[in-house]
Every structure is written in structure tokens, then in C-alpha cells.
Design a protein around this nucleic acid. Structure first.
Length: 440
RNA sequence: GGCGCCUUCGUCUAGUGGUCUAGGACACUGGGUUUUCAUCCCAGGAAUCGCGGGUUCGACUCCCGCAGGCGUCACCA
């Protein structure tokens, strides 16, 4: 039965990445859903660092996680960087707490020492819980064997640390990836041994690649910085992530993080693992780019160009490419002809190419007032006079001026390029085409 | 292999027993607008709802079995 979206009190959720290098898109996904659930119910969303494996901790990884999540517009109410009343929020800073709890279990005969480590003595009882996304899940007792809760280096293992942390931080709802389903019975057993009522669990689907496997660090683009570099807007990425495994009650495709929060409902989360398909992300990103106002987009595009250009130039040129890019990184390829003379590919020109560029050079040379209207008129007259095919004629100009078939609108580009430069490029093209023609 | 989770167009999904000869979005194809491309608009193909049994007057929706996919079985998280 689908749950109703009624409000729940005292909601505290968390995301608990381990600082092993960078912000993972899967972490962002889980964080997003935890954030939405907490905010929807007026609760708190907490960031905790699971750094209990000393060998895997990488310097700078913490920062990367903060930056990645912040970039997406996610903020947390408590965390290692900002503190909070239920800290520490770094596992490595609360070793005594785990040790204390472990000793207590040993004292009660619920755990025992084993080669310097401490092992949890599993009662072997059947364990089950009502998963908020999947319904009742049951594991037979024999499945769980005695497992280590404190390593011989004095650090807790994951399964023990999460439980102690979640208790300490008063986490009410554990929303995490489905790969944790099989850890849940162990954790539930610890809650029971500790005599604490467990939080509620909800297991999200895991994001897959095209092989339907869990997104992997080795062969899938999982580092959030990749998306930033490619020129995806954080709002678009977030929107795309919302659409994986969840659907808007009104079937909307484009909506803000705030709207996600208000319409969020765990009951609308699907169980099957969705494929992370960038094609749809590209589309959403294009939509967000087109929705940006020109000034904002100009500033952004400026940051993605390999050369530094004037603000004025950007303002002129950005409206021309706005509808032609789906990622900010694509601006470069569309604009580079403005500061780089093209290398011509004669084979792309039609047989009338020479005549096109030659007559255009002459016609444009006659213009005294270098404004769009005059360029439009002049070239229009030329086309009529010479009976050129419009599309073909403009393609010749395009190739001559930019070297490419896909460019911003050509007349506007001509105006920005400037009269001398345009004529120079057209004459160059004429020369090249004549040479090639002569050789044939 | 044990255990667990999952299964609607290529992909993301709607769908809570009749309104579904299954709807939307992306992608794709065709057409229109246009100064190429793109945007925008219109149209189209695309799922016998994994398979097989039940239950029911009626099942994509409930039950059982099977198959396939995925996950997990560490002193990693």
C-alpha cells in the first residue's frame, strides 16, 4: 500500500560517506533523498564521515565531499565542518565511545574477544523489518554469523559504527542504497543487544550503468567534478537525479529542489535500480541553460572558455548559442572561430562556393554602416540578384568564416566578427577554392 | 553456491482489480517554422506489462512457482 505523505515528527536523517577521494554521484543521490525526506517533515539532515578505515582515508577527500554536496545545493544541519549537538561527526574522533559500547557487550556476554578484535555473538534469531520502500524483509537467523565489531587496531567495523553513530545522533530514518539490505539484519541484532529501538529503514535502488551493474569508480563517471567540468548545471543534475527511482506525482519532468522536497514521498520511490543515462541529463541541462537569463549564462560561459574574452563580447555572443548548447563546455567549439581563423576544408564547399564567397566579399565590402540590418539586406539582395540558393549560399559563408557547418547564426556572427576580418576570411576562402579548382 | 532484492517501450517512468486494445518524458524517424545546426511546433514507430500457473465475472495490478538481472556473504564501507 502506498504511504500517504502525512507529516512525521522528530525526523533526523543522514548521509554517511567515507572520505576515500571525491564526492560520488551515488552519495549525492542518497544525500538528496535523505535531505528531501528530512526537510519535507521539518527535520534535520546530517552529514557524517565514516572514516573508520584508516588505510582508505585520503587527504582532501573531506573537502571534496563538502564541495560536491554544496555545489548541488544540498546543505546539512549538522556535520564535521559545522558541528552540532550530537557530535563528533567523524568516526575517528569517537573511538572511546565504540570501545565503551563494545566492552559493555563483552561484559554482558553478547560479544567476545578474538585475536585482539571483538566479535559480536549472534543470537541466531530470525530478523525482519518493515522497509519503508520495500515492505517486510526477513532474514533467517543462520544467515548471520559472529562478526567482528571492533578491529584489532581499535577502530570499529562499519556495521558496529553505523549503529552506535545512528543511536548517538538520534537518527530516526536510515535511508540508504539497497546494497545495505544484507547489512541490516546484523545492525538490527546490535540494536537489540544494546537494548535500543532501531530507526526505520528505507532502501533506495542503486544507480546502474548500461550493463545494469552498480555504478563503478573504475569505469563509470561517478566523480561529481566530472559533471561540473562538463558544464552541467547543479540544478539540472539534481533534477535528473530526482527522476531516477522517483517520479513527480503530476508526472512533471522539470522541477526545482524545493519542489522535490515538497512533493517528496518515500511511497513514490521505485524498487528497481535505474540506469544512469546521460542522454536525459543532457536534455534537462539544455532546458536549464535555456531558462537562464543571458547575463547569468554569459558569466558561466566565460568560465568555460579557453581564452579570456570581454564581458561585452560575451553578452553579444551568448544569446546566439543559448539554444545550441546542452552543456557549458560546448560553447568553446561554437565560439572559437571568433578568436581563431578557421582551417578551411575545401571539400565541404558546393561547386558554387567560389562564386558565393567572392560575391559576398564584394557585396559586404560596399557596406558603410556595419550593422545587422544592412548585412541582412545586402546579402538578401545578392542572393536575389545572383539567384543563389539561400541555404547553399549561407553554408558557403559559414564554412568560409568558421570552418564548421554548425555555428551560431551567420549574419549575426558576421557583424560581430567585423568588416575587415570577414572580408579577409572570404578572400582567403576564395583563394583556397580557386587553387583547389585549378588543380582539378 | 547460500541469502536477499528486483522485473511495464532502447532509457527514465505513470499505473494501488474494470477508465489500459497500457499514458508521459528522453532518444529515434518523418514533417513544419528557419539563414546550416539548434530551438520551437506537429506526427510516427516503439512495451502481447520476464515466463508459467492460479484467485476473480474481470489482473499490468492479488497469490504461487520458474527464469533472468542485481546485490551481499571481510578485522572495506
Amino acid at each position: 500500500m502506498r504511504k500517504t505523505g502525512k507529516s512525521i515528527k522528530g525526523v533526523r536523517t543522514r548521509v554517511a560517506p567515507s572520505p576515500t577521494g571525491f564526492a560520488h554521484v551515488g552519495t549525492a543521490y542518497v544525500a538528496l533523498f535523505n535531505y528531501a525526506f528530512a526537510k519535507k517533515h521539518g527535520g534535520q539532515f546530517i552529514l557524517r564521515l565514516e572514516d573508520s578505515d584508516v588505510k582508505r582515508n585520503v587527504p582532501g577527500a573531506e573537502e571534496a565531499i563538502y564541495k560536491g554536496l554544496s555545489w548541488l545545493g544540498l546543505s546539512w544541519d549538522e556535520g564535521p565542518d559545522i558541528g552540532g549537538s550530537y557530535g563528533p561527526y567523524r568516526e575517528s574522533e569517537k573511538l572511546e565511545i565504540y570501545q565503551g559500547q563494545a566492552k559493555k557487550l563483552v561484559g554482558e556476554g553478547k560479544a567476545y574477544e578474538d585475536n585482539g578484535a571483538i566479535r559480536f555473538k549472534n543470537p541466531g534469531e530470525e530478523v525482519s523489518w518493515n522497509d519503508l520502500i520495500r515492505g517486510v524483509i526477513t532474514f533467517p537467523g543462520e544467515e548471520i554469523t559472529d562478526f567482528v565489531i571492533m578491529k584489532s587496531d581499535g577502530y570499529p567495523t562499519y556495521n558496529f559504527a553505523v549503529v552506535v553513530d545512528d543511536i548517538e545522533m538520534k537518527i530516526s530514518h536510515v535511508i540508504r542504497g539497497e546494497e545495505h539490505i544484507s547489512n541490516t539484519p546484523r545492525q538490527l541484532a546490535i540494536y537489540k543487544a544494546l537494548g535500543v529501538v532501531s530507526p526505520q529503514f528505507a532502501h533506495l535502488p542503486t544507480l546502474r550503468n548500461f550493463e545494469r551493474k552498480k555504478l563503478s569508480k573504475r569505469r563509470d563517471p561517478v566523480d561529481l567534478r566530472i559533471y561540473q567540468k562538463e558544464g552541467y548545471l547543479p540544478e539540472a543534475l539534481v533534477n535528473f537525479l530526482c527522476l531516477l527511482g522517483w517520479s513527480h506525482p503530476e508526472e512533471k519532468e522539470v522541477f526545482s529542489l524545493n519542489e522535490f522536497v515538497t512533493s517528496f514521498d518515500l511511497g513514490r520511490v521505485r524498487k528497481a535500480g535505474p540506469i544512469f543515462d546521460v542522454k536525459k541529463l543532457d536534455w534537462i541541462n539544455g532546458v536549464y541553460i535555456r531558462n537562464l537569463d543571458d547575463n547569468t549564462l554569459s558569466d558561466l560561459v566565460g568560465k568555460y572558455l579557453s581564452v579570456s574574452v570581454s564581458e561585452d563580447f560575451l553578452r553579444q555572443v551568448v544569446p546566439l548559442i543559448k539554444e545550441r548548447i546542452s552543456k557549458l563546455s560546448e560553447a568553446e567549439n561554437l565560439l572559437s572561430f571568433f578568436w581563431e581563423r578557421p582551417s578551411l576544408q575545401p571539400e565541404l564547399f558546393s561547386p558554387h562556393g567560389v562564386s558565393h564567397v567572392a560575391s559576398a566579399a564584394r557585396a559586404l565590402g560596399e557596406i558603410s554602416d556595419w550593422i545587422l540590418e544592412d548585412v541582412n539586406n545586402k546579402l538578401g539582395e545578392l542572393i536575389a540578384e545572383k539567384k543563389f540558393k539561400t541555404g547553399e549560399f549561407y553554408m558557403s559563408l559559414r564554412l568560409a568564416l568558421t570552418g564548421k557547418r554548425v555555428t551560431p547564426p551567420i549574419n549575426e556572427s558576421i557583424v560581430i566578427l567585423g568588416q575587415d576580418e570577414v572580408i579577409h576570411r572570404l578572400e582567403e576562402a576564395e583563394k583556397v577554392l580557386v587553387e583547389v579548382g585549378a588543380r582539378v
